[in-house]
């Protein structure tokens, strides 16, 4: 096993883990965003709740949930280790530093954007995941109304603000992260890379926009 541990402790191997887990988290986001968009049907949450019930009771989804948490933890732990190590690689800083001349600000701020995301995720999970989990455990899941929970949480303008900040961090994190993951995997080709880059940007902006509309629409009672 020596070559495996050597590979995954090298700087390239650690980035490989970041890229694979990052792309995996993106596939989760797509499912999450699609299901949550059911609230826009504006049917008082009937379809949305049915979707939520399905996700909360399906045994396969239980397994995927565990994999998802492992993926997230791996991503975060690797991010932390890589970022700390990278900060050590320049002990004396520049007196004059012109970062914007050669790179995008969000590509240089992935650690901060990720940390904002992490804080948001903790708040977000405490809003919804904990309630659903408790309902699963004490057997009340079939009468659990997630839609009502959404309405309650988004009544508070502070919560709406927190969600908007979280979603903006996500958008910028993905604007860099999406195409960066492909480069890390070694996929850079003049036939595909321009498409990957523009698709990544459109995807990041679109998914953040859809997520952002959810608390806004609920708060202002655009959806009942």
């Amino acid at each position: 096993m020596n070559w495996i541990t050597k590979m995954f402790s090298s700087s390239l191997g650690q980035k490989l883990i970041m890229a694979i887990t990052g792309l995996f988290l993106i596939t989760f986001l797509i499912v999450h965003c699609t299901l949550n968009s059911l609230i826009f049907l504006n049917d008082g949450g009937v379809t949305f709740n049915a979707g939520a019930q399905f996700m909360a009771t399906n045994p396969l989804i239980r397994i995927v949930e565990v994999v998802l948490f492992i993926g997230l933890i791996l991503h975060v732990v690797k991010a932390l280790l890589i970022t700390l190590n990278n900060n050590k690689s320049r002990p004396v800083k520049y007196a004059a530093y012109d970062g914007k001349a050669n790179s995008k600000w969000y590509s240089r701020s992935m650690g901060i954007l990720g940390s904002l995301l992490l804080i948001f995720l903790v708040i977000h999970l405490s809003h919804f995941w904990i309630g659903t989990k408790a309902a699963q455990l004490n057997g009340t899941i079939l009468s659990h109304n997630t839609y009502l929970e959404l309405k309650e949480v988004f009544e508070s303008p502070i919560n709406v603000l927190i969600y908007l900040l979280g979603v903006i961090s996500l958008g910028y994190h993905l604007m860099h992260g999406f195409q960066s993951a492909f480069q890390t995997l070694g996929i850079n080709h003049k036939k595909y890379t321009p498409f990957i880059k523009s698709f990544g940007n459109v995807f990041s902006i679109l998914i953040s926009f859809i997520f952002a509309m959810m608390p806004i629409a609920m708060h202002f009672d655009i959806i009942k």
Binding site: S11, Q14, S89, K104, S107
Partner: peptide, 15 residues
């Protein structure tokens, strides 16, 4: 040698 890892910012290529 203590170089950091690549986060694909592209600053190297630009400079």
């Amino acid at each position: 040698e203590g170089f950091g890892s690549c986060t694909n910012t592209g600053a190297c290529e630009a400079e």
